[in-house]
Design a protein around this nucleic acid. Structure first.
Lengths: 216, 216
DNA sequence: CCTACCGATCGGTAGG
DNA sequence: CCTACCGATCGGTAGG
C-alpha cells in the first residue's frame, strides 16, 4: 500500500481513538514510518488531513447507497435489509461511528451541511416509503418517519460505542454486549414500527436472526 | 460564585465543545478572568481538572437517583416517570451528554468502571422491575431488559447531540428537531415495550405529551 | 521523501 | 492569587 493510503488509515485510527486535537502529526508520521515533513508533503496541513479522512468515510458511505436504494424499493423484507446495511456499516469498522461522533461534537456547523447532503436524500426516500406503509396499514400511523430514521441511525452509532463500555452490566449467557445490544436494538426498532408484530420479517435469511419472538 | 466553581463550570463548557485536549489551561483561565498559575493553584494539574469536572457530572446524576427509585417503585406511570427523568437530565444541560460521550471515546477503560458503578445498580433495578412486568403480561416478553434500558440511555444521549446537527432534515411544522426527535424517541420506546399500545400511560400529566396515538 | 529549523503554545514550577 | 520562567512539543517551512 502506498504511503498516502497508510497515512489516511493511520490518521483515521488515531483520530477515532484520541480525537483530532489529541493526535500530533509527529505521532501519525512515526506510526507510518516516515518523518513529519514527509507527511506534510502528502497533506499540506493537519486540517487537510482531517478533511481527507472524513471524505474517505463519506465515500465508504456513498458506496452503500445503491444497496440502500434496492432495499427501499424491494417491497419485501425492506426493514431487515435496511437494518442490515445500517448495522453492518458500523460493525465492520466501529471507528467510523467514533469519527463521525467526534466530528459532530467538534464542528457541529460544518457537519450539519455534510449530513444534510449525505443523509438527507436517503432519509427522505425511506420516510416517503414509510408513509406508503402507513397508508396501507402495515406501519403504525403514529410513527414520525424522518425522526424514526434519524433516531435509528443515532441509536446504531450509540450502540457501537456503548458496547465498548457497558460490558460488565449487560454481559450474560456468553453473549457479548455488542450482540445483545444489537438484538434488542433491532427488536425495538421493528416492534415500534409495524402494526402487526409478525409483519415485515418474512423472507430474507438475515444475519442469524429469527423472528423477533424466537428464543430468549 | 467562587473562582473554583467558575473554573469547573467554564472547563465543563469548553471541554464539552472542544474536547479535553482541544482546550488549554490558558484559555480556561482567561475565560474565568484569572491567570494560568492561579488556575493551577485550585486544580494542581489539567488531569485533576478533568476528573473534577467528571465527578461533578456524576454528582448531578446521583442527585436524580431518589427520583428514579421512586419512579421504579410507584407502580403506575413508571415508564413516563423514568423517561421524564432521563430526557430532562440531558435536556436541561446538553453539555452533559457531550462530556460523557467524549469521555467514553477518550478513555473507554476508565469509563467502563465509572459507568458500571453509577449506572449498573439502577439498570439492574429497572430491569428486575421490567421482568415483573413481563411475567404479568404488561410488557412484551421478547424484550431484553438490561439491553433495553442501556439502549434507551444511549438513544437519549444521541438524541441531544444529533438534534444540533439534523435540523435541515427533520424540521417541519414549526417544531424543532430536538422536540420532534424526542417525541418519536419516546413513542418508539413505549411502543416497543408494552404489549398493549394503550398501557402504561394512564395518570401522570407528563411534560405536555398525550397518549402516543394523539395528534400528528 | 529527509535534515534542519522556526515561532508559538503547551502543561507546569519557583517564589512570592 | 500573580510575575517570571521552564523544557517539551506543537504545526509548519526552507531547502534540497
Amino acid at each position: 500500500m502506498d504511503n498516502r493510503s497508510k497515512i489516511l488509515e493511520t490518521a483515521a485510527r488515531l483520530f477515532s481513538r484520541q480525537g483530532f486535537s489529541g493526535v500530533s502529526l509527529q505521532t501519525i508520521a512515526e506510526d507510518v514510518g516516515i518523518t513529519k515533513p514527509s507527511l506534510l508533503y502528502h497533506f499540506p496541513s493537519k486540517e487537510t488531513l482531517r478533511e481527507q479522512v472524513l471524505s474517505e468515510l463519506f465515500g465508504h458511505w456513498a458506496t452503500r447507497i445503491p444497496n440502500l436504494l434496492r432495499a427501499v424499493t424491494t417491497g419485501e423484507g425492506q426493514f431487515e435489509a435496511l437494518m442490515d446495511e445500517l448495522t453492518a456499516f458500523f460493525r465492520e469498522d466501529p471507528d467510523r461511528a467514533r469519527i463521525l461522533i467526534r466530528e459532530i461534537l467538534d464542528r457541529p456547523e460544518a457537519m450539519r451541511a455534510s449530513i444534510a447532503a449525505s443523509l438527507g436524500p436517503i432519509v427522505t426516500l425511506v420516510a416517503d416509503s414509510m408513509r406508503k406503509g402507513q397508508r396501507s396499514g402495515l406501519l403504525r400511523e403514529n410513527v414520525d418517519p424522518e425522526a424514526y430514521v434519524l433516531n435509528a441511525i443515532g441509536s446504531a452509532m450509540a450502540w457501537v460505542v456503548a458496547a465498548s463500555v457497558v460490558e460488565p452490566i449487560v454481559t450474560g449467557g456468553g453473549k457479548s454486549a455488542l450482540s445483545r445490544l444489537e438484538r434488542e436494538l433491532r427488536r425495538a426498532a421493528h416492534s415500534s414500527l409495524f402494526s402487526d408484530p409478525e409483519a415485515g420479517v418474512e423472507r430474507r435469511p438475515s444475519s442469524g436472526r429469527a423472528r423477533p419472538n424466537a428464543e430468549r
